[in-house]
Design a binder for these strands. Structure first.
Lengths: 347, 347
DNA sequence: CTGAAAGCGCTTACAG
DNA sequence: CTGAAAGCGCTTACAG
C-alpha cells in the first residue's frame, strides 16, 4: 500500500514536504505541490490514520455515548420505540460528522468502573464525545464533565470548560400542546409522562403545568400518569384513566410511542378520536402521521439538534472554551387526533 | 499517559516481555507475569490502539455498510420506518462486537468512486465489514466480494473466499403467512410488496406464490402491489385495492411499516379488522403488538441474525475460508388482526 | 521553501 | 524465558 514515502519518491521531494502540503501547515512551492498532487492522483494515496493518530495524539474520530444502556451500547437503546426519537438526531449527526471528515466510533469498553471510560476514550484518541440524554443522576456524567475531553450533551444539561449542550425546547413544546387543547375548549387534560428522572420528562411536565396554570385550570395530580416512556405502560395507564376519570376529554402523551399505547386503549374502549377523546403525541415520529387517526404531535427540530451538536463540538475541539448551550425550538403539528372538547362522556 | 515502557520499568522487565504477556504470544515466567499484572493494576494501563494498528496492520475494528444510502451513511437509513427492521439486528450485532472486544466504526468516506471504498477501509485497518442488505444490482458489492477484506452480508447473497452471508428465511416466512390465512378460509389474498430489486422483497414474493400455488389458488397479478417498503405508498395502494377488488379478504404486507399504511387505509374505508379484512405484517416490530388491533406478523429471529453475523465474521477474520452461509428461521406471531374469511364484501 | 533526523507506542524476529 | 534493536507510517522541530 502506498505510503507518504512513496509519494515523496515519485514527486522527487522529501516526506516532510508531502506531509506539510497535506496538512497545510506550511508553504510549499507550486512546482513541488503540482508533482505531489500528481503522485497522489496516480497512486490513490490515502494517509494512514493509525500513524497519524500516533504522532498527533488525536484522531479524527467522534464517539457516541448513550448512558441509558448499562453497558454503554448504542443500538440496544435506539432499537426500542423509546429510542426511535434519537434516530433522526443521529442521522443528522452522522451526516455532519462525515461531512466534517470525522469517523464515528462506537467503542467497546469494559463494563467495570466508569472512571476508566474517559481514559479509554483518550487512549483511543477520540477528538470528542457526543452524549445522548444521560440521566442527571448518573455519577458517570460528572467524570466526563471534569475531564478535558470535548463533550456535547444532547437533551441534558451540563456545562464545563470543555462541555456544553444542545437541547430541544421540551418545555415550550408541551406548552404548545396544552394551549392547542385549551383553544379547542378542553379543560380536563391528562398527561402521560415518561420518567421523572430525565430532563426531557421533567421539562415536558413543567410545560404542561405552566400552560394549564396560565389558562386558569387547576392542576389535578390524578391526571398525571407515569408510563416510563413505554408503549405497554402507557396502554395500561390510559385504560384505567378512561375507566376512572370519565371527565377527561384530552390526553397528551409525552412521546409518540406512549401515544400509540394510549391510542390502542382508546380504541379498545370504543371511544372515537377526536370526537370523544383528543390525543397529542410528542416527537413527530415517521409513523405518527399514519396512525388511525393521524396523530397531532409536537415536533422538535431534530435535524437542527444533530447538526448543531456537531458544530458545537467542532468549536470545542478547536479549543474554544465555555461554548454557550443551544436550545432548539419545537413545532405543533396538527393532524386529525385533536378536535373540539366533547361534552362529558357518560353524563 | 502510561505506556508499555512505563509498565516494563515498574515491573523490572523489558517492553518485549510486557508485550508478549499481553498478547499471549509467548511464555512468560510466573514471577514476571505477577509483577507486570501488578504494575498494570496500579497504573490502569491500557495499550495504545493506534500504535498497535500501526505495527499489526490491522485494528480491532468492525465497520458497517448500508449500501441503500447513496452516501454510505448508516443512520439516515435506519432512521426511517423502512429501516427499523435493521435496528434489532444492529443491537444484537453491537452486543456481540463489543463482547468480542472490537470497536464498531462508521467511517466517513469520499462519495467519489466506490473502488476507493475497500482501500479506505484497508487504510483504516478494519478487521472486517458487515454489509446490510445491499441491492444485488449494486456494482460496488462486487468490489468488496473480490477483495480479501473479511465480509459478512446480512439479508443478501454473495459468497467468496472471504465473504459469506446470514439471511432470514424470508421465503418460508411469507409462506407461513399465506398458510395461516388459507387455514382461516381465505382465498383472495393480496400482497403488498416492497421493492423487487432486493433479496428480501423477491423472496417474500416467491414464498407468497409458492404457498398460494400449493393451496391450489390461482395467482392474480392484480393482487400483488408494489409499495417500495413505504408507509405512504402502502396506504395509497391499499386504498385503491379496497375500492377496486372487493373480493379480497386478506392482505399480507411484506413489512410492518407497510402494514401500518394498510391499516390506516382499512380504517378509513370503515372496514373492520379482522371481521372484514385480515391483515398480516412482516418484521414483528415493537409497535406491531400495539396497533389497533394488534398485528399478526412474521418474526425473523433478528437477535440470531446479528449474533451469527459477528460469529461468522470472526471465523473469516480468523482466516477460515469459504465459511458456509446461514439461514435463520422466521416465526408466525398470531395476534388479533387475522380471523376467519368473511363472506364477500358488498355481495 | 526544503530535507535529515528523531520520535510517537507498540511488536517481532534475532540472539542469547 | 528474556532483552536490545529495528521498524510500522507519519509529523515536527531543527538547520539550512
Amino acid at each position: 500500500m502506498t505510503t507518504s514515502r512513496d509519494i515523496a519518491r515519485i514527486a522527487h521531494v522529501s516526506q516532510s514536504t508531502v506531509s506539510r502540503m497535506l496538512s497545510g501547515s506550511a508553504q510549499v512551492s507550486p512546482k513541488a505541490r503540482a508533482r505531489i498532487m500528481e503522485a497522489i492522483a496516480q497512486t490513490g494515496y490515502e494517509p494512514d490514520v493509525a500513524a497519524q493518530s500516533l504522532v498527533n495524539k488525536v484522531s479524527r474520530t467522534i464517539t457516541l455515548t448513550l448512558f441509558s444502556d448499562p453497558g454503554g451500547l448504542a443500538f440496544p437503546v435506539i432499537a426500542q420505540p423509546q429510542g426511535y426519537y434519537y434516530l433522526k438526531i443521529l442521522a443528522s449527526l452522522e451526516r455532519e460528522i462525515v461531512a466534517s471528515g470525522y469517523d464515528l466510533l462506537l467503542p467497546s469498553r469494559p463494563f467495570k468502573q466508569f472512571s476508566t471510560y474517559v481514559q479509554s476514550m483518550k487512549k483511543r484518541k477520540v477528538a470528542g464525545v457526543i452524549m445522548m440524554a444521560p440521566k442527571p443522576a448518573d455519577e458517570r456524567l460528572q467524570v466526563l464533565l471534569d475531564s478535558d475531553l470535548p463533550t456535547v450533551l444532547i437533551d441534558a444539561y451540563g456545562k464545563g470548560a470543555h462541555t456544553t449542550y444542545v437541547a430541544a425546547d421540551n418545555l415550550s413544546g408541551c406548552k404548545q400542546a396544552v394551549e392547542h387543547l385549551v383553544q379547542l375548549g378542553h379543560r380536563r387534560v391528562a398527561l402521560l409522562i415518561g420518567s421523572l428522572i430525565d430532563l426531557s420528562g421533567t421539562e415536558r411536565l413543567l410545560g404542561f403545568q405552566r400552560a394549564l396554570t396560565q389558562a386558569g385550570i387547576a392542576l389535578d395530580e390524578h391526571l398525571i400518569l407515569q408510563a416510563n416512556w413505554d408503549i405497554d405502560e402507557a396502554y395500561r395507564a390510559t385504560l384505567s384513566l378512561l375507566d376512572e376519570r370519565t371527565e377527561v376529554t384530552a390526553i397528551i402523551a409525552a412521546s409518540d410511542p406512549m401515544a400509540i399505547g394510549a391510542l390502542r386503549a382508546i380504541h379498545e374502549r370504543n371511544l372515537r378520536i377526536p370526537e370523544d377523546i383528543s390525543l397529542i403525541g410528542f416527537d413527530d415520529s415517521d409513523i405518527s402521521g399514519y396512525l388511525p387517526p393521524p396523530l397531532t404531535t409536537i415536533r422538535p427540530d431534530r435535524d437542527r439538534v444533530g447538526k448543531l451538536a456537531m458544530q458545537t463540538l467542532l468549536a470545542l475541539i478547536g479549543g474554544e472554551q465555555h461554548v454557550p448551550p443551544i436550545t432548539v425550538p419545537t413545532h405543533l403539528i396538527i393532524r386529525e387526533s385533536t378536535g373540539p372538547a366533547a361534552t362529558r362522556r357518560g353524563v
